[in-house]
């Protein structure tokens, strides 16, 4: 897909999305907003997992860092929400840089273990520092724009999603993206050709963490209540299964996965709280039998339709 075609499709799609607040009721609009949040999360997680082959379990934790930084600054220091979101994004990015430096030298399993540990540390701190975060009760924070309206927040999240998708697209189609894929395919060969493997991974990790921070911060202001549910392993699991079901390492995969699973979970909700179990089973079956996800299946069964990597 050329740059031009990508932007045409992206802006046509977002133009169509702009009409949604006119036709959807508030509940359906909420579902779309949640889907957009998951698109931001899954697309940025895909940047590290799908394109550099590093499985991070701290993506939800970085969203939590963004949400709590922004929330605490607006509530306790009286900052505006916009500045709060910017600070939250930056904090998540800088923390990501730190975690990346710490464990990316070791690669593979160590990264997964450290990020898992990091996300537990964060959850424990947030639950225990009741005076600042109000623990599991959740912290009430102001919306992005003062008279609260779902439609306005829908547009803000849509803008965030566009920004995330453009950043991810730019990165994977730049020289750095080429480096990512080289590192994923064969680390040793890439290193021998002069790719600075560690720098590539740390950079990818920091960018992806910052994007998660942005997603978490905006989503927190939309919900107006942030709880330790945002930096939880459950949310991490949702993001992971959306990316895996949609197709890791493909640009459209996480987008499709996010919308499909968010809408699916709303339907399952009618029959009780089974949606986590159902997601898990679907994700397990997909990861086992179709590791390339929905996009992989589309490539396999419709080779002529032009669905590409």
């Amino acid at each position: 897909m050329s740059y031009k075609r990508f932007y045409v499709i992206l802006f046509l799609a977002s133009g169509l999305f702009c009409l949604l607040p006119l036709v959807l009721d508030l509940y359906r609009l909420h579902v779309v907003i949640v889907s957009l949040f998951y698109v931001m999360m899954a697309a940025s997680w895909n940047l590290i997992a799908g394109y550099t082959g590093q499985v991070s379990f701290a993506h939800a934790a970085f969203a939590g860092i963004g949400a709590y930084t922004s929330g605490i600054l607006t509530v306790k220091a009286g900052m505006t929400s916009w500045l709060g979101v910017a600070t939250g994004t930056l904090t998540a990015g800088v923390t990501g840089l730190g975690v990346g430096f710490l464990c990316l030298r070791m690669g593979g399993i160590y990264l997964s273990l450290t990020t898992l540990g990091f996300s537990e540390i964060l959850r424990i701190i947030i639950t225990n520092e009741y005076d600042i975060t109000r623990g599991t009760m959740g912290l009430q924070i102001p919306p992005m724009i003062a008279p609260y309206s779902k439609a306005v927040h829908f547009f803000i999240l849509l803008a965030g999603t566009l920004l995330t998708l453009i950043v991810v697209y730019k990165i994977i189609h730049s020289n750095m993206g080429l480096n990512f894929r080289a590192v994923q395919n064969d680390e040793r060969a890439a290193r021998s050709l002069g790719v600075n493997v560690i720098r590539v991974r740390v950079l990818a990790f920091a960018v992806s963490s910052a994007l998660a921070g942005l997603a978490g911060a905006i989503y927190g202001h939309y919900l107006m209540l942030i709880t330790p549910e945002i930096p939880s392993l459950d949310l991490q699991f949702f993001v992971l299964s959306m990316a895996v079901i949609g197709g890791l390492g493909s640009f459209a995969g996480p987008i499709i996965g996010s919308f499909a699973l968010t809408i699916l979970s709303e339907y399952i909700r009618a029959y009780g709280e089974y949606h986590v179990l159902v997601f898990g089973l679907v994700a397990l079956a997909m990861a086992r039998f179709a590791p390339q996800g929905i996009m992989g299946l589309a490539r396999q069964f419709m080779p002529a339709s032009g669905v590409r990597q």
Partner: peptide, 18 residues
């Protein structure tokens, strides 16, 4: 590596909910 990490992580969530 990546798929065994992802698969066992999903498995752990599936089992917890089961």
């Amino acid at each position: 590596h990546m798929y065994s990490l992802i698969l066992t992580f999903i498995l752990s969530i599936v089992l917890q909910n089961a």
